[in-house]
Design a protein around this nucleic acid. Sequence first.
DNA 1: AATGAATGAGTTTTCATTCAT
DNA 2: TATGAATGAAAACTCATTCAT
Lengths: 215, 215, 215, 215
Amino acid sequence: MPKVVPGYREEAKNRIIKKSVKYFSKNGYHKTKMAEIADSLGVSKAALYQYFESKEELFTQVMQYYVDSIQGELIAFLKSKHPKEIMTDDFFDILFDIKSNETRDNTVLIDGLFPPLDFNLAISELITSNPSMKNKMTKHYKEVIRLLSDYFEEYKKNGVIKKEVDTSSMAMGIMSLQDGLMTAILMGIEIHEIKRTWKDITKMILRTSFVESDF
Amino acid sequence: MPKVVPGYREEAKNRIIKKSVKYFSKNGYHKTKMAEIADSLGVSKAALYQYFESKEELFTQVMQYYVDSIQGELIAFLKSKHPKEIMTDDFFDILFDIKSNETRDNTVLIDGLFPPLDFNLAISELITSNPSMKNKMTKHYKEVIRLLSDYFEEYKKNGVIKKEVDTSSMAMGIMSLQDGLMTAILMGIEIHEIKRTWKDITKMILRTSFVESDF
Amino acid sequence: MPKVVPGYREEAKNRIIKKSVKYFSKNGYHKTKMAEIADSLGVSKAALYQYFESKEELFTQVMQYYVDSIQGELIAFLKSKHPKEIMTDDFFDILFDIKSNETRDNTVLIDGLFPPLDFNLAISELITSNPSMKNKMTKHYKEVIRLLSDYFEEYKKNGVIKKEVDTSSMAMGIMSLQDGLMTAILMGIEIHEIKRTWKDITKMILRTSFVESDF
Amino acid sequence: MPKVVPGYREEAKNRIIKKSVKYFSKNGYHKTKMAEIADSLGVSKAALYQYFESKEELFTQVMQYYVDSIQGELIAFLKSKHPKEIMTDDFFDILFDIKSNETRDNTVLIDGLFPPLDFNLAISELITSNPSMKNKMTKHYKEVIRLLSDYFEEYKKNGVIKKEVDTSSMAMGIMSLQDGLMTAILMGIEIHEIKRTWKDITKMILRTSFVESDF
DNA sequence: AATGAATGAGTTTTCATTCAT
DNA sequence: TATGAATGAAAACTCATTCAT
């Protein structure tokens, strides 16, 4: 693409962000070097600084981009699913980003709906020293919980989910389960054990929450 | 204590390890500085190197110590509890290390029973570059799961937990839920929401797993 | 003005020079960035390089321009004044560029007659590494001294200034006093103290130098 | 000198400061590199950072040290001189640090009483961006003026200096003259011209200020 | 003629680690 | 055994300058 083209700058920023996510997510914040990102893009370090004021800003934008993109996708995704599907193999595969992990290099940023393995890690590394980032993440986390709750709430109205169920707990529970299982993957637990746990526990949650459960 | 006494060396190592836990757990691996640990112990950096060959070795030993301690404590703790208690306030407070968080400076981390998530941070930072460490962590993680499963298995035998329940899933589910909620805390979610979710979700798990549930 | 007009190039160079004076004078050589100059002119950095081979050349030309302008103005200015006026408020205000300091952004520096001290800063920064520049500055400095001396010499001929006075010393003394008081301003001394000193000392110089001093 | 000796640290700091002053004073703040100072001391850059948190702090301490030392010396020096001596060759030589300039490498920081040639330059480079430094310099400048004024005031009491003379103006005038002539040296004016001017102008000042002037 | 993009060559700063005493 | 001092190797960041269009 020629360089003097409208939108080139945005294009370039996106290219950097997409490449950066790989390193931040794989190695965390501190172990990711600007030189590494620059090299992998075939540009100089200085070039990165034309688009991002600092490493921290780059990371923040990576997060921002990720966070912004995900919410819309999440809604669309949920709309097409019945809550029962949460405990299926298909849902698990998408949620845990099983396939895209292997070809991450050539895929766009958001293959799955939830943070790529280990992305939380990089966030955590910064979150203590960067309060504005913490606020952003809190906001995002709550927003996702709200979307999930709203989704469950809809099914409560339809009489699928029991009246007395706290859909906010349900949302947070399912999300935390996923986060925790991500850690388990990181710790070296085999994926089939992760999957079995996911299916068993979500089944328990749904069975207790549904008015009629034939599973 | 005089310095040329047998066991002094071990004593000293332990003192270093106990102090290091705090920093690695709070700040992760890279943000924790050798100088910081040395200062907080009132010794020189060089002194640390008399007991540990490198930062990485110190961290490995910290993990080892932590992991070893936890298992003993876990067994003792579980022996005194009925599974039903998992969903109580008291259990939550101990598990999430609520009190010690406030006075963290003076308490040893392992007051809590499971590795709090921000410890995972440090582990994760190293795990990619240090495969032997990953093996150790995997071993430990599995060991804790096994202990928990065994504990549930006991109650299966007693007829408290249903025959068809997979206690290994139960163990992993509960542990992941805890890990995931630790992330939520880190992301800035209020503790009362964490607690509500913990109680609601564990209740669902227990209710489906118990033969007779009067809750 | 269309760009393919003879003289356009000179015009453009002058615009750059005039703008640059402000930055070099306020911030010195090293703190002045090419980007800063370009931005303030609303052009690209690359544009500057069409007119000046390097930052150093730009600065040299800035000095050249400044120095050339000053001499013409100085002659014109002195012609209209009696030496006695040196110790007046009006003269002080012009010399120390009092008014233009307040609206410096919109005025050209050379409203003042002598190089304000903070311009010396930039000169000094370069002078060691650039001998040809030093020669130019020496030449200019001597030229200004000569102009001042000639002016006093004229009044010696008229019998206003004593025969035995060394007008060259007088010129250098007055000029150095001004330079030194510029330093004092920079060091944070209040302007009224500067003014009082200027008036007191110049009065002393003039009183001793004049044949008849009624002040 | 052995390294584990009380006072070694202070000694080392002083060695660094003394060496640094040479570079800051010769090249100004920006052109002076930490590497250059380190190399000339035969130590690593990192060593400097054991004694000074940053380049700016090093410079500040250089200034501080200089400023602190000079006031005591100034008083002692003045006590031994009669004001009339100000216009002598000897005084000039000391004031303008003529000899020590040539052998500066091996001499202690404060050879002369006033800032080494060009030292103001380095100060100026920082003063705009560092308000606390500006305050310190203002305080110092005023203090020196006060010391000089007090000195003249003493001679006013003794009937040597006229009652109506403003000794504060006198002090600032003489000091500014020196500063301004330093600039002239920098600009390449020959030292004999500087000296002639100094002697002529101070003579004028003294002649007008003294009750009886036989010169 | 003009510019957005890119960069090489620094420069300050950091930190785990070593060493002389 | 203990430490104050020293450092090498790296990392983030800067900026004058060049280049393709």
